[in-house]
Design a protein around this nucleic acid. Structure first.
Lengths: 195, 195
DNA sequence: ATGATATGCCTAACACCATTAGGCTATGAC
DNA sequence: GTCATAGCCTAATGGTGTTAGGCATATCAT
């Protein structure tokens, strides 16, 4: 049963797999220990506490997502890059629902400083090269894209679109269209904008 | 201590207050019972289980949010209405963080069918009257606005913007500007769009 | 090789939580 | 007055996170 040696990384991975299989909320130290063929107190040699474990899953998910986004947007520009970025998020949310849920939690220090987080921001900013935005607007546009994509996927995942027509799949393309249009028609900053 | 009679509504309200005060995750049957000066098994006469209680908080939050949005957008049109709607969401998220968190959960039957949920969708659609969108695009635009506003507030709340400059407050206005621009420049549906 | 040390698992224990079963009491109907 | 019911209670069960301390095995100095 203990084919895998017990390390911080292997525990986090087991937790992530468990999250994908049975839901992020069911990631409990007991369940992870069970899955590793070990008693739960044994995990404390490698992991500070439950919160640190969940934060570890968040960091892992950020890394994986950054990698997917990176591959998706490579060699693309403009609308094509935007769509690839959005679809990479959506695919990840679909294929690894538990890991993706880990992204929807208050970010701790470790996640905030992680390479994955930085990369995702940088890659989103890179997509903006295909649009006529001044450099000073990039922060806002990155946040805009992030908010919309994340918000849509989360509402879809929570079933918010399940009770109305048409299906969420149709809206997804319209929303990428709208994002694209918004970036093309990006409004000039009004006077109140100070960094 | 039992100034308030124990009913389903009073229990849900106590749970919502507790969520605002100490965080949505800390809403436990024990804690709610404690707050009501009662033992936790007593709650089961009025509430099915913990999940039903949380769903009740969600419905309450939907109702309250719908009411705020309704007041905010009344007598406004176009960008002014859009901004009022977004700010109503943001104010609610700020003032009642626990209740607002209740909105970010998988929606059950009761929440999906609630008047609050229907009203919020209808009010968002009403904002679109000030923009040149064909009726058939309203669903998508409503989902677009909902995704962006929700996504932004959630990332802000999770501290996703806390580690970068400029502050989230500045971006908020830029994002409403961008939403406004997107609705004005709403792209024509491509051929693939079938309801 | 041998003994010291340290690592890393274990069991035991505690407090907290959700939930069920069943008892006691006060309130209302008749 | 009696009786039934509603609504609280206590008791108990099984699951959770977490800490304390035991015990074996691997690592290393000599």
């Amino acid at each position: 049963m203990k084919a895998i040696p017990l390390t911080a990384a292997s525990i986090v991975e087991a937790a992530a797999d468990l999250a994908d299989a049975t839901g992020f909320d069911s990631v409990t130290l007991s369940a992870v220990a069970r899955r590793l063929g070990v008693r739960s107190p044994s995990l404390y040699s490698h992991v500070q506490d439950r919160d640190a474990l969940l934060e570890g899953v968040t960091v892992l998910a950020l890394t994986e997502l950054a990698s997917r986004v990176s591959v998706a947007v490579a060699g693309r520009a403009g609308r094509s890059a935007l769509e690839a970025l959005a679809d990479a998020h959506r695919d990840y949310a679909r294929e690894s629902p538990g890991r993706w849920d880990a992204l929807q939690r208050p970010v701790g220090e470790e996640a905030a400083r992680s390479a994955g987080a930085r990369d995702i921001v940088a890659l989103t900013a890179a997509v903006l090269r295909g649009y006529p935005l001044p450099e000073s607007e990039h922060v806002h546009a990155v946040r805009f894209i992030g908010s919309t994509v994340n918000g849509y996927l989360r509402i879809e995942r929570n079933g918010g679109f399940a009770h109305s027509r048409p299906s969420a799949a149709v809206s997804w393309h319209r929303i990428i269209d709208a994002l694209d249009a918004a970036l093309r028609a990006w409004p000039a900053p009004s006077e109140g904008a100070r960094p």
